[in-house]
């Protein structure tokens, strides 16, 4: 089983309410095949496929707990460079062609556009494509300095609002920021870390984030947290 990509022209075929809801389980092969292309390299696609089936056996439908297991796993099995992971075609192949059933199992069909982003979301906005969001969460929080490199990833994927406070803003692209943000705010309540996130963003309009190291960022976040908690 090889990793492949789906080109952008397939979006027109895939953008279909019946497919997103599951009334149409799969896009017929004769319609989708022409839009599938190869990806160089060997990745653990078969293992990922089996792992997704196992998760569906172990967890109830729409259980967010799946994320914290799947995030590290997908990052390990698909050892992509950032360049390759930036290709939305890979993620669209996984959601549309390989495991549309898993996408529907993980997300409840609320409406068309919500489900469309779970299938076809781009990579630039974090919380969209079912698999890309997990891979990137792991990529942006994986650590080399502790025994469990995915400790922060699991924490983050267990608390969706925390993850959004971090990744919905562009400071989440700076890895030292992510590690400091999690380290300082992991025990704080939602009202606190959301307010800190807002104030931090405002502060960073005058301070050049890329010039700060981990401990400087930690000091900055601690200061703002003290302001917020009084």
């Amino acid at each position: 089983m090889k990793l492949k990509r789906l080109n952008q022209k397939a979006k027109r075929i895939v953008s279909n309410k019946r497919f997103f809801s599951g009334d149409l389980e799969r896009i017929p092969e004769n319609r989708i095949q022409q839009h599938i292309g190869p990806i160089e390299g060997n990745y653990g696609v078969e293992k990922l496929n089996n792992y997704l089936s196992d998760l569906m056996d172990q967890y109830d439908q729409h259980d967010v707990e799946m994320d914290k297991l799947l995030g590290p796993k997908i990052h390990q099995l698909l050892s992509l460079s950032r360049r390759k992971a930036a290709d939305p075609g890979i993620w669209h192949y996984l959601t549309v062609v390989m495991r549309p059933d898993f996408v529907r199992y993980r997300w409840e069909f609320n409406n068309y556009s919500y489900m469309r982003k779970r299938f076809l979301g781009n990579v630039r906005s974090w919380d969209t494509n079912t698999f890309a969001r997990l891979w990137w969460a792991a990529e942006l929080t994986k650590r080399k300095d502790i025994s469990d490199p995915y400790r922060d990833t699991k924490f983050l994927l267990e608390r969706q609002t925390f993850a959004r406070a971090l990744f919905d803003r562009e400071y989440g692209w700076y890895k030292p920021m992510n590690l400091a943000f999690i380290s300082v705010l992991r025990e704080e309540k939602k009202t606190v870390f959301e307010e800190v996130a807002k104030r931090l963003n405002k502060t960073l309009s005058t301070v050049k984030l890329e010039t700060l190291n981990n401990s400087q960022i930690e000091r900055l976040i601690k200061g703002i947290t003290q302001e917020v908690t009084g």
């Binding site: 950032r82 360049r83 930036a86 630039r124 990137w136 400071y171 692209w173 700076y174 890329e210």
Partner: peptide
């Protein structure tokens, strides 16, 4: 002086 780089597609910011 610093040169800061932003790569939106690969979620990367760095000096």
């Amino acid at each position: 002086l610093t040169l800061a780089l932003r790569a939106p597609n690969t979620h990367l910011r760095k000096a």
